[in-house]
Design a protein around this nucleic acid. Sequence first.
DNA 1: CCATCGAATGACATCGATAACAACAGTGGC
DNA 2: GCCACTGTTGTTATCGATGTCATTCGATGG
Lengths: 351, 351
Amino acid sequence: MSTRTAKSRSPAAPPETAADAIPGTDAGRLTMADLAARAQVSIITVSRALRDSPSVREDTRRRIQDLAREMGYRFNATARNLRLQRSHTIAVVVDMKPTPERPMSGPFPLDLLGGICQELTTAGYNVLLTTGQSQPAAAVHAADGAILLGQGADDTAVRQLLPIGVPLVVWGAPQPGVDPVFVGSDNHQGGALAAARLVETGRRRLVFLGDTRHRENAERLHGFTETLASAGAVLAALVPCDFTFNAGVAAVQGLLADASGGFDGIFACSDAIALGAMRALTEAKLTVPDDVSVIGYDDTPMAAFHTPALTSVHQNWTEGGVRLAQSVLALINGEHPDSVILPTRLVVRAT
Amino acid sequence: MSTRTAKSRSPAAPPETAADAIPGTDAGRLTMADLAARAQVSIITVSRALRDSPSVREDTRRRIQDLAREMGYRFNATARNLRLQRSHTIAVVVDMKPTPERPMSGPFPLDLLGGICQELTTAGYNVLLTTGQSQPAAAVHAADGAILLGQGADDTAVRQLLPIGVPLVVWGAPQPGVDPVFVGSDNHQGGALAAARLVETGRRRLVFLGDTRHRENAERLHGFTETLASAGAVLAALVPCDFTFNAGVAAVQGLLADASGGFDGIFACSDAIALGAMRALTEAKLTVPDDVSVIGYDDTPMAAFHTPALTSVHQNWTEGGVRLAQSVLALINGEHPDSVILPTRLVVRAT
DNA sequence: CCATCGAATGACATCGATAACAACAGTGGC
DNA sequence: GCCACTGTTGTTATCGATGTCATTCGATGG
């Protein structure tokens, strides 16, 4: 037979006994060569049979497939990837701030990850997860493509990843320099929706809470002020703050201390900020929404379950994940997908 | 030189020009053979030099390393993995229920994933993420180890994963059959802490809200009733329910409708249930915590930011992720780590 | 009865990196 | 001056699967 027939794993014991392949026994993984020897065919025939190649006769194919199942054969993806020069793997780089306190509590990467996994695994790709902490390079190098999930105000991560030369898709707001493909939700629209709602309910002096160094927040502010202006309302204050509850508290406390004309509506860049703001308002004996109306962002469970229930801008993360995945796949296929901007919607509740 | 010298990527163009290696240009990835030809040494010397082998002379090593950097050489992990018979990859199987409505919103896998990534990447391992939806098998086969993150009441996932023969660690409550290694937080203690607190604050007729088909919940119930009994309080009711807000509402509504003696304390298996319960109580004109005291589980942001702020049992997920990672690593090294049970703590707030 | 064609199968080289062993130069001891 | 020894580099085989080209066999046609 083949020259490799003799090279069986257990030289002493008879390798033909099916007992060799007790599932769970890791002793010497089976290879196609083992199957080939057993089935009295060549290795390549086994390879073809297992891939359902039409050039293998029906019964031969079935015989080999059955044999593989019986013997507990496990396919070696590494070998195939080497041979085929592709890893069938997409690196997902989660570039979260190393802030210890509530670094990234939102559903952010979770639902996004869900969407990504769903799409990628059904397409036969693996998802390699890395945090930006260490050098993501190592993992990304080996991948067929990469997805960057960051909330960074800066774009250092993008700059690190781009030169690697792997197809890259980034979650967030498209940048002026159009280099990588972006997928994100429509922050401009989100801001506009919030503004429209606040104006509709009769508010005229509005506050924006969020760090506009984040491109996404800058977009929200843009949509927000644009809509305000066209409705004759004014932006009473813009307070840069983190995405946290405490930042929201502090921001509103500062606002109340500084008696610069007052305000009757707040748009916060996260539900946590919004809840913090409401806490500060309540402590100052102001009621929501009678005295001040509040709108949050992200539509997290805590918005829904809070009393009073928080009105919030909802972004469809799962869909976002799916689109991210589709875009990398497209890039890998040599296509040139456009950046995607997903619509947001306002979930109106009590505030 | 070596026989491979002639086998350059671009046969027409002179392959010696460094301009070939513009970073970002993916044209024909460089291999160690290319570096070897360029440096006038053998491939194996390049391999050794790049791995900082002491058997390569200091200056040779540096020369090759510099050359690799200049030419933009990118290491091929697949080839090494094939040769070394290990993938340096751990599969993380997230076996979440496909329930569309808030399938898994808690920080659950996110912080857990964070801990896992942190530990695994610093140990030089990659994290392969798969959802239980499709057959996780494919990815797990290629991995050196696997971590199962599930909330399943059943253990079908474990049963699927175990026979694959890959070192497996599972998040959750240890099972009677001691087969896989478990890492989880001390649910028994969590239940006991909640009971102790409720009893301390003078409650005597208590309600347990949660589906005890989940092993973790069963443990909580066990610790809960045990402590109750020793303090002379009674379990007034046990209502099986999902982890959702709505389930909490429904459970308490049912309880109030059915006038079977009343209750003055509730222990819920998730913060969402607890919040739902409070909503139902409030709607029934009962006040928290004066009429009924409530304790939740998971210490999510929504517990902290709710008014009144919800007392909740906290589990350290990041730590859990780290321990999960450590356990797989230990298994891979042929050690036999014990299951780990992490302590929980009660975060006392207003309710 | 031989040429030809197609279906089925096989031999070989290959992907890129590495372990095991071989070879070779220079050094010191006797 | 010869041998053993160390330090450095090279040769070869190998991991497991697959593309390419070659081969075999039976069937068909002239």
